[in-house]
Amino acid sequence: MGFFLEVLIGGLLAGVLYSLVALGFVLIFKASGVFNFAQGAMVLTAALALVRTLDIAQKEWHWPFWLALVAGFLFAAFVMAIIAWASERLVLRKLVNQEGIILFMATIGMTFFIEGLAQTVFGADVYPLNIGLPKEPIFILESVFDGGILVNELDIWAAVIAGLLVAGLALFFQRTRIGRALRAVADDHAAAQSVGIPLNQIWFIVWLVAGLVALAAGAVWGSKLGVQFSLTLLALKALPVLILGGFTSVPGAIIGGLIIGAGEKLAEVFLGPMMGGGIEIWFAYVLALLFLLVRPQGLFGERIIERV
């Protein structure tokens, strides 16, 4: 029982990290109907910008840690703003009124471009990232189970950050002027435009917010795995989360992430040995696929209504 719970909690905490990446997808899809495949590349770019600034500020300019950290985050946010601006200005604006699938392929093109550019500018090695989050494994519930349950403190911090982000986003969407405008655009582009909401500005803001979410995801994943190219594969991990939760739902992304994270780890530990191991890489997809057959719009997605 203790072992099962340990695997479950580990899976849930990993799931929170998937949710962080999936969140960026959902934001952009909600506001502009673009399925942004480049989210993984944005995570990588944000993490690279952060870690390189940290390194240079600390080692070459001898700044104190906190100042370097602030500078790193500011610079990474600046890079994300540039990406948001460029993608709105140079790609999306030229592709208005195209089909969703064309926009999707354009974001695949952007993925390659951003990955190539980020690695040319910031280098392509593996950089360890330390943003002051604790990394020691700790034991909890020692009084309930024999030996307690092993969890990684970093994962708990990640969960806290994800929770704060979601709360912040919810407030932003519900309570602010821009948030209301974003929801209006998500509802109906043409109607939003006709009441005077500047579409281009809104798209820039939403890409910027998605970029900042990518920065948070990059910071957490980077401290966990080190900043490296494989961070872009997170985009692929986030897809089943999206399918499960629905493309348009922020709570869906969180719950989908938890289900995928937990299901993946449980399957790997309990089913894996029977099937030769390594089933983690496809289990999430097959789970999501089976789920789709029952509910094509995901858990919390809007009902798909088709008209000819």
Partner: peptide, 28 residues
């Protein structure tokens, strides 16, 4: 699955084929 889902959802579903095949030919 394409009979029931389309667009992006289908694209994700075909990724299932990709990852399953990667795994199957490596592990089985």
């Amino acid at each position: 699955p394409s009979l029931r889902i389309k667009g992006f959802y289908l694209a994700c579903a075909t990724l299932a084929a990709q990852f399953f095949a990667d795994w199957a030919f490596l592990r089985i």
